[in-house]
Design a protein around this nucleic acid. Sequence first.
DNA 1: CGACACTTTGAAGACGATCAACGCCGGTGG
DNA 2: CCACCGGCGTTGATCGTCTTCAAAGTGTCG
Lengths: 251, 251
Amino acid sequence: MNMEIQTFRALPLFASLSADEAALLIRNSRISQCKRGRFLYMHGDANNYFYVVCRGTVQVFRETPDGHEITSNILIAGDTINADEVVSGLTIHMANARAVDELAVLEIPVKWLRDNLKDLGSLSAHLLTGLADRLRSAEMEAEHLTTMSAAQIVACYLQKICVLYNFDPHGFELPYTKTLIASRLRMELETFSRTLQKLKDQGVTVTGSHVSFSNIRKAENFSCSECSIAEDCATHRLLHARLDQRSGRGA
Amino acid sequence: MNMEIQTFRALPLFASLSADEAALLIRNSRISQCKRGRFLYMHGDANNYFYVVCRGTVQVFRETPDGHEITSNILIAGDTINADEVVSGLTIHMANARAVDELAVLEIPVKWLRDNLKDLGSLSAHLLTGLADRLRSAEMEAEHLTTMSAAQIVACYLQKICVLYNFDPHGFELPYTKTLIASRLRMELETFSRTLQKLKDQGVTVTGSHVSFSNIRKAENFSCSECSIAEDCATHRLLHARLDQRSGRGA
DNA sequence: CGACACTTTGAAGACGATCAACGCCGGTGG
DNA sequence: CCACCGGCGTTGATCGTCTTCAAAGTGTCG
C-alpha cells in the first residue's frame, strides 16, 4: 500500500500538497484496486467517493436506451474521474465507470472532502483548472465532431494519444482496443476501421495496433484544421518537439 | 452606473458575496456596455478581463477556416463568459464574443482577480460549480449530438429555453433568431427550419418565432430520450412544474 | 481444437449538408 | 408613395458521409 501512496504523491493533482495536507488526505482516504472489466460505479449509484486514477485506465460511459455504449472519456493516471459530479453536488452518478485494465484509484469520501476542501488549498486550485481544461477540450471536441470528417477526427486523436503517452511518433502501439477508441471518438467501429485504411494515403499508417506517422506534415495538414490554423492546438507543438527530439527529420 | 451595480449584485454568481467582498470587487472592476453586433473580444485578442454578463445576450463562437461560424454558447445575465480561459491561464482568447443585443458586462481585470481570488471565497466556489455544471452539460450535449436526431435535439432545446427563461409552455416567443439557434445547435439553418415543420406532428408547433407545446407528453417522449429515461434531465422536471403551475393540464 | 472477443469488409440505407431559388419584411432613399 | 435593398427564413433537389445489418476473418486462451 505504501507504494501506492508513493504513486499518488507523484500525480500532478497532489504534487503541490504540503506534507501536512498530504498526511491529512491520506488519513481520510484509501486506495482501492479494481480488476479489468469491473465497474467502479454504475449509473444511478450513490456518489459517495471522489475518485482519482493512480494507475491503469478507466472508461467513463453512458448507455442509450437501446443499449448502445457512449464513452464520454478515457482516463489515465492523474485524472479525476467524477470531479464534475462531486463539485456539482450530485448525489448519484450520471455515468458508469469501468476498469479498462488493472486499476488503482484513490477514494476520497465526498462528505469529508466537502468539509475539508478549504484546508486543501492547492487541491482545490488544481480542481478548478482541471475542470476548466476539461471544459475547453470538451467544447473543442464538440466543435470537431460537427466540423471535421471522421478521417480528420481520427488523425487528430492519434496525434493526441502520441503526445499524451509520450510515444515515439515514428511508431507506437495503440494503448487500448479499437472498439474503445471508436466509442470514445463517437463513431462506429466499422467507420473507424475504414477510416484507418483511408489514412494510409495521408501519412498515417495503422496495421493491427501499430501506428506510425510516415509523413507527419501531411498527416497534420489533414487533421484538425481548426487547431492548426488557430494555432491553439498544443498537441501539434508538442508533437513537433517530440519529432525534433527523437531524430533529425520525420520522412 | 449604480443601477448596474444593483443588477450585478442580483446575479447568483455574486449574491453570496459579503458586503466587504462586494465592495472590493466593485472597486476593482467596471461595468461596460456594448451595442448589438459589437465584439466584446475576438479570437486572438489578449485575455485581460474576466467578463460576467449583467444584462443582454452574448454569442460565443469560433470561425472555421472556410469562414463558417460555430456558436459554442449563448450566454445571458449571470453567466460568466470566459471563465474557462481565465482559469486555464490562457493569455489570448480562443473564441469571439459578440453582443447579440444591448449588453452590459462586468469587467474584472484577470491580473487582479488572480491575486485576490483567495479573498473572494464564495466567488471561487461559485466559479468551481459553474465550471463543473458547464462541463456536464457540454458532455451531455456532445452525447446528444451523436445519439439523437435533429428533431430530438431541437425539441429538447426548445424545452430547455422554455424552462431557462421561465416562459409559459403553452406559448412563448423565441428569444433569438433562428439563425443563431441553429448555429448554437450545430446544424444548418435549412435543417433547423425543416425540422420545425416535422415537429408539428409531435406536439411542438412553431410558427414564425412563436412556440407552443400543444402536446407536452408527446413532445417529451419524442425528445431527449437520454435524459428522460435516465431521469437526470432537470429540464423535464421543471417543465412539468411550470405546466402544473400555469394551468390544470396541457392538452 | 474450439470458444470467444476483436476486427475487417461489403452492400444498403438514412440523415444532414450543400447549392440554389424564392418569399417575407423592415428600412432607406428617391 | 413607391422602389430597392439586405437580412432572415423557407422550400426543393442532389450529394456525401456515416450508420446499420450481415458475414467472414484474425487472434488469443482455455
